[in-house]
Design a protein around this nucleic acid. Structure first.
Lengths: 339, 339
DNA sequence: CTGAAAGCGCTAACAT
DNA sequence: ATGTTAGCGCTTTCAG
């Protein structure tokens, strides 16, 4: 069963294929009668436009490429969910690529997208990317590029992020306002702006309230349940006094929380715990985990909307890039609020 | 800056474009010297193959389309994660489409994929699809199709699922083995095989152990935290005696669990609770939630492997479809195990 | 309102 | 080992 083309429809109706093409694209200069006939025949012959041919000729694919570290993370899958919904409503398809935080994969993804002639690329860069050269291969080709959450700030590229500095600040100030004074910070060892910003917020909050910022209170590692446990274990082993833990990610906070409870320490009365990301489990655990919400779906939607707005510009890289910064939402729960 | 094509490379090197094409595709009949020269020039001119042209001509896109209800669900995003990783390793790109459980969206996704000439479609059908006609538009076009998790069993299409019947059976038998005798089942009102199978397992487990299967113990609704709470509320209001709840999904189980705890009922001592899906929160809540793991990432990987295996066949629809059925893994935790 | 013709960038059969 | 040629199925100018 060969595939139906506009030539087949043309032959049936005894018109030329270019008339058929116009009818199918709802061209104004085609009579209603012809359009109806073409549409009917197309349906009857089970015609499906070949987008490859159409894109090759027109230079537009209506496809965008999305690069994320991993979909097996509620943060990214939720943002992608938001992006896809909006882009889809606006006639775009989405090619998806996971990097697994590897630079080689990121390179492969970009190349694939470029070769597929996507109309734009939306990326949240992996932890291994540093320097701007890497992503310049995209701007050199004049392919529209947007970052979300993890941006490369040296590059004049639009982005949608949350205010991680403010998030770190607000989270820490919340702990301080609850009476905690010796606050440990657990953060990532990856070289990512988001974590540096959260740390800056933590640091500034302490300073603002005349609390010391101490090396021994800051732990870096691979964010995870285990890292949270280990860190608290190490703190206790070295008998460093602390009365609260602010982790840059919820699983890590959860690890800390679990370890504390196992050791019979009362949370939040003796030690307060604060996470980051608003994972689903936070609301369900006991004590419920205080955290910061990143507005994931909104981030995706805003990213898509910004893309749609900018794609109209003839000169994407000529205009100064727009940066949308979403507000983090503090979600105080029981783990950080002693009576 | 016009894009470089094989013609540009050919001109530089004073060969024909077909020599360049061959060199680029590592054709055996091209001298090493020419290949090297072509590769060097390609790199220098920043050449990127145009996959649209190549696919249009060759009839293969190396793109597969994935249809899922929503990425904002840990189950689906996790499976997609597994599919993407494997397909990507094998040179495929992935177009992603979310249906939001809507038939109209599902239709749109299929059409887009067909028009994009994907090499295959992997789908987990939405709750609104019934009958096989819908998906026959794909088989009619001879485009390889695979189902995962939610399949249409009337269609001779390969699939990767878990044994939901067994899962329901094992989960219920576990409850029975723990001494529970009046087990409520909370399930979905959607017309999906997965839920019917879980129910069948529940029913058969009761019958096997000479326990009555009663209408009043079975609640159908939109699976969610709220539905879990409501159902338990209603049970208590109508004073129907029960000693365990088996929900077909973890959030629903969590709702039931929370409501019971709020009412001062001891879980698991007075009432046992069992969920389904092994959501992250289950391990963290108190009491920890017993559940059934669906091997999501493995499901994705198996789906991809099956696809890769079958795509080789010249006659996809000629051979009897292979069905891979994964074993559900019972994860007994505290919510179902009284001392 | 419709037709004719060119060409997007590549693959692949057929030559040489 | 390389060149020639003919499309893949469409969009888009230029004609009429």
């Amino acid at each position: 069963m060969k595939k139906t083309t506009i030539h087949d429809i043309a032959r049936e109706l005894d018109v030329t294929f270019s008339t058929v093409a116009r009818a199918l694209n709802d061209h104004p200069a085609i009579s209603a009668a012809t359009k109806a006939a073409v549409l009917e025949t197309a349906k009857r012959l089970n015609y499906q436009q070949n987008k490859l041919a159409s894109s090759l000729r027109s230079g537009r694919t209506n496809v965008i490429g999305i690069i994320v570290p991993s979909l097996d993370t509620s943060f990214f899958s939720s943002v992608v969910h938001g992006i896809e919904r909006v882009m889809n409503e606006n006639g775009y398809s989405m090619l998806l690529f996971q990097t697994g935080e590897s630079l080689a994969q990121e390179q492969k993804g970009i190349e694939t997208f470029l070769q597929s002639r996507v109309d734009g690329i939306i990326s949240s860069v992996s932890g291994e990317v540093d320097g701007k050269e890497f992503y310049e291969q995209i701007s050199k080709r004049q392919v529209p590029l947007l970052f979300f959450d993890r941006a490369i700030h040296e590059l004049p590229v639009p982005s949608v992020t949350i205010d991680d500095y403010r998030a770190g600040l607000v989270a820490t100030e919340h702990l301080i306002s609850q009476g905690y004074k010796q606050i440990v910070h657990l953060t990532s060892d990856r070289n990512l702006t988001i974590f540096k910003e959260r740390f800056r917020g933590y640091r500034d909050a302490l300073q603002r309230h005349n609390l010391p910022v101490e090396e021994k209170m800051i732990y870096k590692g691979k964010l995870s349940l285990e890292f949270g446990k280990e860190s608290v274990q190490r703190l206790m082993d070295s008998e460093i006094p602390f009365d609260a833990v602010f982790a840059a990610e919820d699983y890590t906070a959860m690890g800390a929380l679990q370890f504390l409870l196992e050791k019979g320490i009362k949370v939040p009365d003796e030690i307060g715990v604060m996470g980051f990301a608003n994972e689903a489990f936070g609301a369900f655990v006991t004590p419920s985990l205080s955290t910061v919400d990143q507005q994931t779906i909104k981030m995706g939607e805003e990213t898509a909307h910004l893309f749609l707005k900018l794609i109209g510009n003839k000169d994407f890289y000529g205009s100064t890039p727009e940066h949308i910064v979403l507000d983090p939402i503090l979600i105080p729960r029981n783990s950080s609020q002693p009576l």
